[in-house]
């Protein structure tokens, strides 16, 4: 779709802003609406927009489908890892209170990390779904 000059220029401007907004939603989820799931979907949307405007082959050079499979598993592993750290520190699975000396700081750290895991898994899954459905 290279000949659609308006689309490609608007996409070039929009894609970084969508990514920035996704990161805002991801890390501001503790204070405002949002969180890992929404941020993951928005982040994936920027890649999908790129894929629609500039073609699947170019998107494949930007982010490799094999790499996305690793990321999808990594997000889930981060989540489970945070839970297991709770056990190693002598508490229950997913007990964030023990992640830091202060329980409230521990809760905050735990929530940020599991939301990060959620975001990574959701965004890579969404791009994998797009790859699976999009016609090459």
């Amino acid at each position: 779709m290279e000949h659609h000059i308006v689309l490609s220029i608007v996409a070039r401007i929009l894609i970084p802003m969508i990514m920035l907004f996704a990161l805002y939603v991801q890390f501001h989820g503790d204070y405002g609406p949002g969180g890992g799931f929404q941020a993951g979907v928005i982040f994936a949307a920027s890649f999908i927009l790129y894929g629609i405007i500039f073609g699947i082959e170019n998107l494949r050079e930007v982010i490799h489908p094999g790499f996305l499979r690793i990321l999808a598993a990594l997000g889930l592993l981060i989540y489970i890892g945070v839970g297991i750290i709770g056990i190693l520190n002598g508490g229950e699975f997913l007990n964030y209170n023990l992640l830091s000396a202060d329980p409230l700081t521990g809760q905050h750290i735990g929530i940020i990390f599991i939301e990060l895991g959620v975001g990574i898994t959701v965004s890579s899954t969404m791009i994998i779904l797009f790859y699976a459905f999009a016609r090459p």
Binding site: G29, D30, Y31, G32, P33, G35, F37, A72, A73, G75, L76, Y79, I80, G83, L94, Y96, L104, Q107, H108, G110, I111, I114, E115, G117, V118, T121, V122, T125
Partner: peptide, 26 residues
């Protein structure tokens, strides 16, 4: 200790449920 109640329920009180959701997505 975080202002967004929804996040504290989803990520902390209901951490197991969210783990299940992510497993479903995976």
């Amino acid at each position: 200790g975080i202002p967004n109640l929804v996040t504290s329920v989803l990520a902390s009180y209901r951490g197991y449920d969210t783990l299940g959701e992510i497993t479903v997505i995976f």
